[in-house]
């Protein structure tokens, strides 16, 4: 069963979870099943959102993606390499970078540029190449101007962009974002989401975004919904959010316009398509209202 992936699969699949179960043991030795038989493939170049309530196991799953945690049962493969192979730990962490929730607690150095260089120093990158890569990484998140600034003078959104630059500099194939906007204000949230979208579209980096904000999940190509350690939905954002009742029952939100469309459908109005954005929804309703007028 386990272990062997065929070659073509390895070329396509960035992260593969096979029957992953994770049991968290507390100090008294009581076990709690946080992940329950997860099977998931994340393709290269895709933008996948993992949506779920607090405590649904989504962050625990994310920590399996770069071997911070290894499963109690089952296997996780990164580029076909099992996360249990300790010798490959550096390779795994280099190909899957991670950005965490609290922007303060992941910045190590006392200036922006030195923090971005931190990962490269660890990898032993030579001096000239390091400076080049730091510059490119900072430019790609729009923080090059502030390269000499100490981190505590930056806004939350800027700190998070520095953290992202630190990961980009290591040239990963995939970045896992563990609720990167949970502690930010709307402006910072926007900055970070724009950066994430850019990484995926322009640089071709595979993105896994853990979140409980449906607006953010709606920007992905694929939404995986988790509840009580299991995957309960896995589809395009339009398909997922059109199931208004199910999503609400899981304690999550759907976009307000999707809710409007759903209520109209219930009242017997014939309105088609999966609406996530204000613009398309307004257009559809406009057509209906004009038809009615004529």
């Amino acid at each position: 069963m386990q272990g062997i992936l065929c070659r073509s699969e390895r070329l396509m699949v960035m992260i593969k979870c096979e029957n992953v179960t994770f049991v968290y043991e507390n100090d008294e030795g009581e076990g709690k099943k946080v992940l329950d038989n997860i099977n998931l493939n994340i393709e290269k170049g895709s933008f996948v959102a993992i949506l779920g309530r607090n405590g649904s196991g989504k962050s625990t799953l994310a920590k399996h993606f770069n071997a911070v945690l290894t499963p109690t049962e089952g296997m996780v493969f990164i580029n076909g390499v099992s996360t249990r192979e300790e010798k490959k730990l550096f390779d795994i962490r280099r190909s899957v970078g991670m950005v965490f929730q609290n922007p303060d607690n992941q910045i190590v150095a006392t200036t922006v540029e030195e923090d971005v260089a931190f990962g490269l120093e660890n990898l032993g990158v030579p001096y000239d190449e390091m400076h080049e890569r730091v510059k490119i990484a900072l430019e790609s998140v729009g923080m090059y101007e502030q390269r000499r600034t100490p981190p505590h003078l930056l806004s939350g959104g800027q700190k998070q962009r520095v953290a992202i630059a630190g990961v980009i500099a290591m040239q990963p194939e995939c970045i896992v974002f563990d609720e990167p906007t949970a502690m930010l204000d709307p402006k910072g949230r926007k900055e970070v989401m724009e950066t994430i979208k850019k990484l995926n579209c322009e640089m071709g980096i595979t993105v896994v975004l853990i979140t409980h904000f449906m607006e953010e999940a709606a920007k992905a190509d694929r939404v995986v919904v988790m509840d009580k350690g299991r995957i309960v939905m896995d589809n395009s954002p339009g398909k997922v959010f059109s199931k208004v009742e199910e999503i609400t029952a899981l304690g999550l939100d759907v976009p307000q316009v999707t809710r409007v469309v759903n209520l109209l459908k219930k009242k017997g109005v014939d309105i088609k398509g999966e609406m996530l954005r204000t613009k398309e929804c307004a257009e559809a309703i406009d057509i209906l209202l004009k038809e009615r007028r004529n």
Binding site: R259, V260, L264, V269, I285, L289
Partner: peptide, 13 residues
């Protein structure tokens, strides 16, 4: 709210 919006649009339709 979504409820009010749906109601208003429905009434217009």
């Amino acid at each position: 709210t979504a409820e009010d919006a749906a109601e208003a649009i429905y009434n217009k339709l």
